Computed example of a mutant assay.
Amino acid sequence: MESIFKAWKTSRNLYLEYFEKYTLEQLNKIPDGFSNNLIWNIGHIIVAQQALIYKGSNLSGYISVELYGLYKPGTIPTGLTTETEIKELKTLLISLIEKTEVDFYNGKFNTYNERMTGTGFHLSSLMDAFEFNNYHEGLHLGCMTNIRKFV
């Protein structure tokens, strides 16, 4: 588990750099040929992690239903993300790591609902979900690398 958490922390710190390097306008810009923007990708990986780990374990997690609705799989940006919302996402990006780590080591995850992801990955355990989460976050970091060239 230590290596999974280490990879996750590294990934999230790479995402955190986008808040420092790009303006609100750049974070919100959807370049021609793309269906989302930099900030949507950040919001998406936050809600996806909560769904993969917490919802998959029949737990409520730490994000609002409204936030989930904005960034869940299959969504696209519906408007401009505000500075206030950006601050919330920035906080969640890092704070959820510690909360998930504490919950894991305190034995909060007792069950996992086996399922197939929308991309065809079979998740049969909590460990599968953690590993898939890191893979998923890497995919979206790659998407953002492409988007940033056009903002």
Score class of each variant (00 low, 15 high):
E83M: 07
I76T: 11
L80A: 14
K99V: 01
L93S: 03
L96W: 00
I76M: 10
G74N: 09
G79D: 13
G74D: 07
E98N: 12
T78W: 03
I97K: 00
P73G: 12
T82D: 07
I94D: 03
P73S: 14
I76W: 03
T82G: 05
L80G: 10
E101M: 13
E98Q: 15
E98M: 01
T81A: 05
T75Q: 12
E98W: 00
T82F: 02
K72D: 07
S95I: 05
L70E: 13
K90V: 02
E85P: 00
E83R: 11
E88D: 12
G74T: 08
L96V: 04
L96G: 01
Y71F: 15
T100N: 13
K72E: 12
L96Y: 04
I94G: 08
L89G: 04
T81S: 04
E83H: 09
P77Q: 09
S95R: 06
I86E: 07
T78C: 03
I86V: 14
T75N: 10
L70T: 09
L89H: 08
T91M: 10
T78I: 09
K99E: 13
G74R: 07
T100V: 06
E85M: 09
K99H: 08
L80M: 11
S95L: 04
L93M: 05
K99A: 14
T78S: 13
T91W: 04
P73K: 15
T81V: 15
P77N: 09
P73L: 10
E85I: 01
L70I: 08
K87S: 11
E98K: 08
G74L: 01
K87R: 13
K72Q: 15
L70V: 07
T91S: 14
G74I: 02
L80Q: 11
I97M: 02
K90T: 06
K99F: 02
I97Q: 04
L96A: 01
I86F: 10
G79S: 15
T75L: 02
K72A: 12
E101T: 13
T81C: 13
E98P: 00
T91K: 14
T84W: 08
L70H: 11
L80S: 12
L93I: 06
E83F: 03
T82C: 03
G79H: 14
K99G: 03
G74K: 07
P77H: 10
